[in-house]
């Protein structure tokens, strides 16, 4: 019998976990992690945590300038180093969200917007009735709209159909750290939509990120899980690795679930058996 030549395995040093990149609206991103800039203990920790996360996209909110104080702009701090994605956080109507997006475009010279239209201040769940017309208007106005939406496949599909180049379903309420409360819906969203799915909100720790990626999400947007961790910089590294692990697991193709055991070791030649082939 001919023995197939086995190649030497790569040295563990060279086995870097490099996941494939992400493309949204024709723009390539090196990292599938999007990270928020709020709630860090201080600005230096924020900068170090963002760096440790490997994220390329960072989110910012648009707020009134304080007229009584100057201060360093976040834009000066992050512009040029990161892809700045403004959000419409705090908006409860389509009208306010559209204006906020337009102001973000003027201030940051970007057509990209993370569209949030909130319907309830306890849960911060999106208001679909406002979200969809806001998305439609912004898409028509030339924006690249990444909508934060409920984990509802029908809503996600509608957002895709009206021209959003990615959709961002929530895993759980913003800042709740509850993880992915309805993984089956996320799976259905994955199957119904062809645009990238970015899981947005709900991540509490690294494993939530892995689960999101294993479910087929194309990326994860998080903030609190890192910013409010006891050690944000270390947690940023954890979520980066978790994302790579989840993405690699997803692209590797997991084994199917089965209710009963399937032996890993060969069933032939078990010592002491009269007839190994009939052994169970």
């Amino acid at each position: 019998m001919k023995k197939a030549a086995l190649k030497d395995p790569p040295s563990p040093r060279n086995r870097e976990a490099v996941t494939d990149g992400l493309t949204i609206a024709g723009r390539d991103f090196t990292s599938r992690l999007f990270i928020g800039t709020a709630q860090y203990p201080n600005q230096q920790v924020m900068l170090d945590a963002i760096a440790a996360s490997g994220a390329e996209v960072v989110t910012v909110a648009m707020r009134r300038v304080r007229l009584d104080a100057g201060g360093e702009s976040l834009f000066d701090l992050l512009g040029g180093r990161y892809f700045i994605l403004p959000n419409t956080a705090g908006c409860y109507t389509a009208r306010d969200a559209v204006l906020t997006a337009q102001l973000a475009r003027e201030a940051l010279e970007t057509d990209w917007v993370k569209l949030e239209v909130i319907g309830d201040d306890e849960t911060l769940f999106p208001d679909v009735e406002q979200l969809i017309p806001a998305a439609r208007e912004l898409v028509k106005d030339g924006f690249i709209v990444l909508p934060y939406c409920n984990d509802d496949p029908v809503t996600a599909k509608k957002l895709e159909d009206l021209g959003c180049p990615a959709v961002m379903p929530l895993g759980a309420p913003i800042g709740s750290g509850m993880g992915i409360r309805n993984p089956y819906n996320i799976r259905i969203i994955r199957e119904m939509c062809t645009v990238p799915i970015i899981l947005d909100a709900g991540v509490g720790t690294a494993s939530d990120v892995t689960v999101a990626m294993e479910l087929g999400c194309d990326g994860v947007l998080l903030n609190s899980a890192v910013a409010r961790a006891r050690d944000p910089i270390s947690m940023a590294r954890a979520v980066r690795l978790a994302l790579e692990a989840g993405r690699l697991a997803y692209t590797s193709g997991r084994i199917p679930h089965r209710l009963y055991a399937k032996a890993s070791s060969p069933e032939e030649g078990v010592i002491g058996r009269v007839s190994a082939s009939k052994a169970r």
Partner: peptide
């Protein structure tokens, strides 16, 4: 009139 700028956000 509203004068706005980016601030920390998620």
């Amino acid at each position: 009139i509203e004068i706005v700028r980016p601030l920390a956000g998620g």
